[in-house]
């Protein structure tokens, strides 16, 4: 008797996800090509994307903070392999981008530049798609803006 080692059993589940009030504020701003975080009333740190509650203080974050679209690459990796669900052709650089005035970095892509030029401390600016959608992917990537590199000491706490 031939052993049965495999059969297909496809599963499909459908979910309807709601963003919640805090993410709605953030994503509505993205539609206008604005980046809006929120500040914790206790530790005064600015979170982007905004959080309903501060991860360290558990305080309600209610104050919106408008952020510029410039920032610093605090650390990065060059993705050189394909994987399921990938949006870009490798190689490309994904990086922690600390927006000026924010206290946590965004994980995003650094583009418009040779991947070998990407480095810690690189100063970058957001490049948007023509028609923003309610997603952080409306920022196509961050690209070098020609400013001198930031000192390691200035972002050491924010990698």
């Amino acid at each position: 008797m031939k052993p049965v080692t495999e059969f297909r059993s496809p599963t499909k589940l459908t979910y309807t996800v709601s963003a919640g009030t805090v993410a709605t504020e953030f994503l509505s701003a993205i539609l206008q090509r604005r980046i809006v975080g929120r500040r914790c009333p206790v530790c005064t740190k600015v979170y982007v994307p905004p959080r309903p509650a501060c991860p360290t203080c558990a305080a309600l974050c209610e104050e919106p903070v408008e952020l510029p679209e410039t920032g610093t690459v605090t650390t990065f990796s060059v993705v050189r392999i394909p994987f399921p669900g990938q949006l870009l052709e490798p190689p490309y650089a994904c990086a922690h981008v600390l927006l000026d005035g924010a206290d946590v970095p965004l994980l995003h892509i650094v583009g418009g530049v040779d991947v070998n030029q990407v480095r810690m401390g690189l100063r970058v600016t957001a490049v948007w798609y023509e028609e923003p959608q309610p997603t952080l992917a409306s920022i196509r990537y961050f690209t070098p803006n020609g400013e001198p590199d930031a000192d390691y000491a200035s972002f050491r706490e924010h990698v």
Partner: peptide
């Protein structure tokens, strides 16, 4: 249907 809270928001409210 709760459209207002995400996981963190729900948990913050009840634990506090």
């Amino acid at each position: 249907v709760d459209n207002r809270h995400d996981e963190g928001g729900m948990v913050r409210a009840v634990t506090a």
